[in-house]
Design a protein around this nucleic acid. Sequence first.
DNA 1: GCCGTACTACGACGATTATCGTACGAACGC
DNA 2: GCGTTCGTACGATAATCGTCGTAGTACGGC
Lengths: 127, 127
Amino acid sequence: MTTGTTSPTASGGAPSGSRSLAHPAREDIRLEGVLHALADPMRLRIVCALAAAEGELTCADVELPVSKSTCTHHYRVLREHGVIQQVYRGTAKMNGLRRADLDTLFPGLIDGVLRAADLQAGRLGDG
Amino acid sequence: MTTGTTSPTASGGAPSGSRSLAHPAREDIRLEGVLHALADPMRLRIVCALAAAEGELTCADVELPVSKSTCTHHYRVLREHGVIQQVYRGTAKMNGLRRADLDTLFPGLIDGVLRAADLQAGRLGDG
DNA sequence: GCCGTACTACGACGATTATCGTACGAACGC
DNA sequence: GCGTTCGTACGATAATCGTCGTAGTACGGC
């Protein structure tokens, strides 16, 4: 999805995505890293929101009770551990879950975590 | 919390093995806590060993490349986050996975993590 | 009663982390 | 061009964590 058709409006020309971000290859994603990334409440919220959106969200789309710097930090942790992918798009940065990679490496893991988060949310505060 | 050290030979009530350890109630187990507990390589190893044993193991049964103090620390983290239960039995302390509680709260989560750990072990070390 | 085994408590230490504020850069619209 | 919006980089800071060693406690066997 991200590759293929480059610029949507195509007026920019050559390297429209000049700002690029380093992502770990699928083989480099480690279970402990993923678990660590998911173990933080803020990051778990981000991941849940991304999963619920089933698409890309900007960093600002997920409301978090922390400063913008901290926000950037959490997104970076998620990206560097292979949980999400990030692509610049204009002034915004789109975030998406790396479901395909994660499901291939650890089938059922993300589903289990998302389901667990959902159950816990219902159990704790959502009544 | 500063209790203990009292009534080692108290009659009645508690059984003679009265050294008891505080475990969180099932309702108090939090997903972030479980994920955090599982995110450490040593602790993940312990949990995998416990799951493979399908029973109780002493702390010393799981060989870890760390000192005994560190070992105790990791077991305590696992217990305090509701991942394992610990019971004194003579001089030994038996450790067991809290599968029933975890599966009730977060169905599929532990299975997913264990399977992921297994897959990753095969992918990395086995060739 | 004494000793060995199994685990713990405590203090220490370095490394990592989560958080913030401020200053900066990159793209868009005017 | 200029300003706005969105995100980043860089320090700074306090908290947490993983690790260790040493000293200590509980239990069982002799």
